[in-house]
Amino acid sequence: MKKLLQEFSKGIFMENPTFRLALGLCPTLAVSTSVVNGLGMGVAATFVIVGSNVIISAIRNFIPGKIRIPCFIVIIATFVTIVELIMKAFLPALSNSLGIFVPLIVVNCIVLGRAEAFASRHGIVKSIFDGLGMGVGFTAALVIISAIREILGNGTIVGLMVARSFEPALLFILAPGALLVIGLLMGGINFLSEKK
């Protein structure tokens, strides 16, 4: 049990996909304009990571080594398609605002990275916890970035006004803001970890 928790928590802190490994940055920057979008993207990606981890781990002994990457991609693409269709049916507004970044989960390096580095070498239960940890770590990073951008750029948090006299800086919900926030956050994290 302790080992499983370790697999889970490493994705959130020590090997956080966004801040530590700098993986999956494209969707992180593109959809983090509001907390709702960030959360939606995080949950969708978590579903795909866990799902593909389970299937790949279950059939890992049947996949020939040479064509494993194409096999992984097919499995991942299947889960992405499921997410796409579910989102379109039940959350059309979210699906609209995430746009092409829902199908783009298929080329998210976190997903393929976990399949290659973990699920193809470990058992199902471990892979579930690994996938959950990575997914939660990714979601947490997305929520942090999108909260910063939403507060500074729109003056709201999850749609609620922060302070009446605050005049939001539009830049933060536009493209340059995403690059600025991620650059400063990465620098800040480097600074803190160097200090330790």
Partner: peptide, 8 residues
């Protein structure tokens, strides 16, 4: 540029 984009 920062000001122009932020508070047009």
């Amino acid at each position: 540029a920062f000001l122009q984009i932020s508070w047009p």
